[in-house]
Write a protein that binds this DNA or RNA. Sequence first.
DNA 1: TTCATTGTTTTACATATATCATTAAAGTAT
DNA 2: ATACTTTAATGATATATGTAAAACAATGAA
Lengths: 188, 188
Amino acid sequence: MITIKQFFARISPLKDEYWQLFSSKLEKREFSKKQIILQQGQTENYLSFIEKGIVRHYFPKIENDITFDFTFEGAFFSAYKSFITQSPAEYNIQALTDISIVSISYQNLQKIYQTTPKGNMFGRFAAEGLYTKKFNRELSLLTLSPEERYLALFNEHPKLLKQIPLKYIASYIGITPQALSRIRKRIS
Amino acid sequence: MITIKQFFARISPLKDEYWQLFSSKLEKREFSKKQIILQQGQTENYLSFIEKGIVRHYFPKIENDITFDFTFEGAFFSAYKSFITQSPAEYNIQALTDISIVSISYQNLQKIYQTTPKGNMFGRFAAEGLYTKKFNRELSLLTLSPEERYLALFNEHPKLLKQIPLKYIASYIGITPQALSRIRKRIS
DNA sequence: TTCATTGTTTTACATATATCATTAAAGTAT
DNA sequence: ATACTTTAATGATATATGTAAAACAATGAA
């Protein structure tokens, strides 16, 4: 469990007065395991911070979903393109565990942008974080083997990973569930 | 050859008055083939539009560079993270051909942001484009085979691809030059 | 033009993953 | 508890890519 307040406290340029403004706009939301948080075709209304739990981003397919992202405790998520353009999302977001998230709506974020000159700081911070994550992901897919990607993920989130079904992790790594099962056997 | 003015004409929300303001800040720059546009460690000062030529983004390595991006005519490029945070770039950007680009500096872009209420529109547009490119790239690396990635790239830029050394394309696709050589033979 | 360097292709072999099939285990619903 | 469904593990086989070495081609510098 990591509260958004703790998270903010670590971002030095964002002072108390900003937090006051910001926290007044936050909405606490809860979802149960396997629940769909955002469905393909809906427009993303929130930028969300995970206080507890794990979230999965995927393209729903008849045969096999394509899982392309996980978000863990202490990080922001959103169907970002849908959020900033306010157009329909291309994919689903799902709770993999029971989760607690804290969200700010598109409308409220716009208000903050307009209320204070430093308003954009948070939006930029979130955008940078999401962009950096995608960038690192690209490098991971480009330069590491599936086994190395699994180990990297495992080292970052050893406990949390145990709560994710193997087939989703396999898809995220870019291999079949069979192959991941063998990798696990090999490295154990 | 695609001018930035033609590009702007296609973005309907950005009207003439915006173009007037914007174009006055643009700097035309030229680089010759193989020239380094931005070196690792330098801070990116520009967001640039390619009117003519091809650009390569890569991590310089002793043994083998890691080429992770190409930008072609008619698109924007920047060491984006370096640009928005005004901190040192992690990688190199190089001209693969003689190129003509049109750039706007960080300072001038900030001025535009402050001058007009619609100022952010352009910045957002550029950011969206770069984010979308990374997103599609992630899907490509996740769901396509190296051969399929090569064919996709080839179909998008059949002529331009001929101007890029095989080893850079191989790195971008995530395979060795030998493997790409075999793929080319196989599909020809 | 010549020589040296760099880039590309080819061959041989090792290996990891894909695919298909089967069995075991876990999870879900009745 | 039982039956049913989904997920995971295992085995056999095929294939694409990695690696290493060598030949060949293209490029650039002197």
